[in-house]
Amino acid sequence: MPSPTEPAKRCLEVGRTKKTVTLSLFVVLALATGAAESWFPLPLPGVRLGLANVLPLFALLLFGAKEAVAVAGARLLLSFFLTGNPFALLCSAAGLACSLPLSILLYSKFSGSLSVPAISVASAEAFNVGQVAVAVMLTSTPALLACLPFIIAAGAATGYVVGRLAEIMDKRLREKYL
């Protein structure tokens, strides 16, 4: 959770119902974005652009760590139920395991020196590393690691975009609510 001495990073104070509805909306939006971005061809299977990560990040900025985890977790499970692809599930789960804790940690401890886009970049990279590691282990093909530079570059790009987007959305919403 954000530390008390951090300025202007208050969790949004809303009633439980409103929060639940909002978070569900986020999950749905994440699923939709995820479905839309799966059309984009990537050299690795089960590896996605990660644009849908704007939603958990947004939840983190707006509400806090617990909510971000909830959105990310719900999205993971639901997208597995929808697509039935256990390998994408494994890759994404591994990715989340690497990136969620990282983004929560960076946001709560380092938001003085790290901008939101930068945090997003770091967590996107962590996510991709997790995904690639699992893909490599499942196919026993270390040669897949040759895609790393591409993945790293793509991660930086989408991470930045996602972070910036989340930041803007966060500012706008606070202006509206506060």
Partner: peptide
Amino acid sequence: KLGDKILYAGLSIIF
């Protein structure tokens, strides 16, 4: 921010 610069620098090295 400063942290950003460090992050991007480190990332470039890794890249």
